[in-house]
């Protein structure tokens, strides 16, 4: 792999990541594909997102109340859990689950379509593979990842509540009143911007990797793995970058 080819690949990725979102506003619209993808990505991931979020919420609540109890600050468990979940853990955790479950699926499906020349057939028939394959996956990610994140956040908070009230013997109504307190514009915006960016990154990376699959079964394995690995890396990096930007924009002070 020489420099020229690396640059060409980077260029291809830029083109894909620009053309795919433009396809949202351009005919033809592939509604059937969009709904199928939404069903796969959203409905299909719901169970695992709920399961993981519930347990993480419970574990967090337990850790934090244990830490706060000796200082006599146990009642602030709700606030601490709430902020960590909404601003940070919820979006990142859901995105990582999404990358592992949906990103790998996108890469392997598009990879096997590429290897089986199905993508070439689309192009021969004058169908733009980006519009037909990438845009529907991008749309479904932009809708479903934020939705899953909201569900995951809610379930985590509920798990936190359960531990705070039934294990740590705190007041349930005080827990919820703190959660209500932190549901201000700043926290909600910082929690909801992230999943859109993550969804965009995961869909573009996974589709790009899938469409550039080469070399049979081994190539497919590599494509699926790289889709997940790159998605995770970029989600984590962009999370920090976004946190910094949002802190500036929202005027949080450290």
């Amino acid at each position: 792999m020489n420099i020229k080819q690396n640059i060409a690949r980077l260029q291809d990725f830029y083109l894909l990541s620009i053309r795919a979102p433009l396809g949202i506003f351009k005919r033809p619209f592939y509604f059937k594909e969009i709904f199928e993808q939404m069903d796969y990505a959203g409905t299909g991931s719901l169970f695992i997102v709920i399961l993981v979020s519930l347990f993480i919420g419970m574990a967090m609540s337990m850790q934090i109340s244990a830490e706060l109890a000796p200082m006599g600050l146990k009642m602030y468990t709700g606030k601490t859990v709430g902020i960590s979940i909404i601003r940070e853990i919820g979006p990142v955790l859901t995105a990582l689950i999404y990358a592992g479950r949906v990103g790998s699926g996108m890469a392997s499906e598009l990879g096997s379509m590429t290897l089986g020349h199905q993508v070439d057939i689309l192009r021969v028939h004058g169908v733009n593979p980006i519009n037909k394959l990438v845009t529907p996956r991008l749309i479904s990610s932009l809708v479903m990842l934020p939705a899953l994140t909201v569900v995951g956040d809610a379930v985590s908070l509920f798990g936190g509540y359960y531990v705070a009230v039934f294990v740590s013997n705190q007041s349930g109504s005080f827990y919820w009143s703190q959660i209500r307190d932190i549901m201000d514009m700043q926290n909600i915006v910082s929690g909801i911007v992230k999943p859109y960016v993550f969804g965009y990154l995961i869909a573009c990376i996974s589709c790009y990797v899938g469409l550039s699959t080469r070399g049979g079964a081994r190539g497919l394995r590599k494509a699926t793995t790289s889709a997940v690995v790159y998605s995770i890396i970029f989600v984590i990096i962009s999370d920090l970058v976004l946190t910094i930007i949002l802190f500036k924009l929202m005027g949080f002070s450290i």
Partner: peptide, 26 residues
């Protein structure tokens, strides 16, 4: 018109939809 190795049929579509593909698209 090309016929690829192994056929390259769209595996999410049945025979009818595969053959109707370009008619529907275009």
């Amino acid at each position: 018109s090309i016929v690829f190795q192994e056929g390259a049929l769209f595996d999410s579509m049945n025979v009818y939809e595969n053959v109707a593909f370009s008619l529907r698209e275009y």
